[in-house]
Nucleic acid binder design. Structure first.
Lengths: 165, 165
DNA sequence: TCTTGATATGTTATACTATGACATGTATGA
DNA sequence: TCATACATGTCATAGTATAACATATCAAGA
């Protein structure tokens, strides 16, 4: 049975005030260690995703970058988002054509997302790559996985509760 | 441990000559039973997907439909593809913004796809919804899933073999 | 110092993906 | 006959993403 994070963030109410700066600091450290440049646009893009705490379209991110004095053309956003996703600081939600800051940037993982179609919250659950469903299928078929997309649409606990009321 | 189809089609060489007509006949039967109309455009769209045996973009499908005398505007393709995906005759591969005929139309299943980035083949593996990874995560978090997207990119057995050579 | 190469940011232009809104046709049933 | 539901077609537009090119910066090496 695959491991999973029993407490994915995203649906739980939590103190949001410090998590942005903490995450940026962690990202900064990580980039330094890895010899990567967390440049102003890239850092700002990460902050934007962290502040929202939900999936944002590339053009949403672009609009805010532009407001903050960065370039106003699509490649500005796409390049920053490419950097963040490539290095595990953000993920693309394929189902939504949107991006979200990574909730577990510290460790290598195969992210799985739970997308609430009612309130549009997105929770990231962490799974153990080596035991995941996809790995098992791959093993059975001789396929070598380089990247997995695991996304579920549905209703989150909070919205389920409201429905019942 | 999740069940899985040990022999997903897609990477295995197989006799392709009859599978299109068989699949169309099965789809026709299914639609009749369910009171659905497998109209000419819809049937032709399904045939196009079946003939290719890989993921096709909506505009690829549109081009062929148009060649065959159907409408030439995007909604023609999107509506046919919506019908097919809605009723389990085809699936959308979110990672590719593309569509593929369903390999297991007869039974309710949560499809999982293996996408070869080298030869662009796409294999569909069948998983048991009730035991899948996503269901387990959902259970642990109180999330109610309505639809799951399970897609893996990587290298298929055939292309792995070629690489080694 | 000068130069080369790698990286990063910005631009313009364009390509690819998808849907809204409306007109028409056809079949079913009241 | 009329109303309704559904299907197909159109035009127009919205939303997502990348190619190609100019410029700037910085580090490594001649």
């Amino acid at each position: 049975m695959p491991e999973m994070d029993p407490n994915p963030i995203g649906f739980a109410k939590h103190d949001h005030s410090h998590c942005v700066q903490d995450a940026v600091a962690a990202a900064d450290r990580m980039c330094r260690d890895a010899g990567l440049q967390l440049t102003p646009v890239r850092q700002r893009a990460l902050e934007i995703l962290l502040e929202e705490h939900r999936a944002l379209g590339a053009y949403d991110v672009l609009a805010r970058l532009s407001e903050d004095g960065f370039g106003s053309q699509p490649p500005v956003a796409y390049r920053a988002l490419d950097f963040l996703t490539k290095h595990g600081l953000a993920h693309k939600i394929e189902r939504l054509n949107a991006f979200i800051a990574c909730a577990h940037p510290e460790d290598r993982h195969t992210p799985a997302f739970l997308i609430c179609t009612s309130c549009h919250a997105v929770a990231e659950a962490e799974t153990d790559p080596s035991h995941s469903l996809m790995s098992q299928i791959a093993e059975a078929t001789g396929f070598r996985i380089s990247r997995a997309v695991l996304e579920a649409e549905g209703t989150c606990p909070n919205c389920l509760e409201k429905e019942d009321a």
